[in-house]
């Protein structure tokens, strides 16, 4: 197993955190992982991406040219990364926000109303967790439980009161992605 994942969206959508959450959970399952952030002069509302590789074998280059999975959390990142996704790869699109549609026919496309599902889970700001759930619903890279239990370690204890709503969002996304 080897997946090369790009998470992309606006700064402030929790893009870096999505990558860290899945990389951390995968590490705990004994997998090799790398995580690289975009670390330019990023600001809230600017573009942000995180590159995550999860593999059963040691990872030489941590850089991703053609992701096998891309999560596009907004329109600009959809337009930027649709062309880069590897043939037969998976493109997850936040259709609540994206202002255009994907055109590729050689990849799997999952359009998902992320903001609405996050709202249903209890907080419109946690669309990133919905997207992660959907990703695991579609591709069994790691178990849902690893992801959920991992959050406890990487979320600052000051915010542990938000863990239940995050879990709900992940499960909602998972359900949607498993369909």
């Amino acid at each position: 197993m080897r997946e090369e994942i790009v998470f992309a969206g606006f700064g402030g959508q929790g893009i870096m955190f999505m990558g860290k959450a899945i990389a951390y959970a995968a590490m705990n399952e004994g997998k090799h992982v790398t995580w690289i952030p975009s670390y330019g002069a990023e600001v809230r509302g600017g573009t942000a991406y995180a590159m995550v590789i999860i593999s059963d074998e040691a990872i030489a280059s941590p850089l991703i040219k053609e992701p096998t999975i891309c999560v596009a959390m907004n329109g600009p990142s959809l337009r930027k990364y649709e062309i880069k996704v590897k043939a037969k790869g998976l493109l997850i699109i936040n259709k609540s926000i994206a202002d255009s549609e994907a055109k590729r026919k050689d990849i799997e496309i999952l359009n998902i109303p992320i903001t609405e599902l996050a709202q249903e889970a209890g907080d419109h700001r946690i669309g990133n967790m919905v997207a992660l759930g959907a990703l695991l619903g579609r591709k069994k890279i790691i178990s849902l439980e690893s992801l959920i239990s991992g959050l406890e370690d990487i979320v600052s204890s000051a915010y542990h009161n938000l863990l239940p709503v995050n879990e709900r969002a992940i499960r909602k996304g998972f359900e949607y992605g498993s369909r």
Binding site: M27, T34, W35, Y39, P62, L63
Partner: peptide, 9 residues
């Protein structure tokens, strides 16, 4: 920059 910013186990 990559080595500084990249996370790995």
């Amino acid at each position: 920059g990559i080595l500084g910013q990249m996370m790995e186990p």
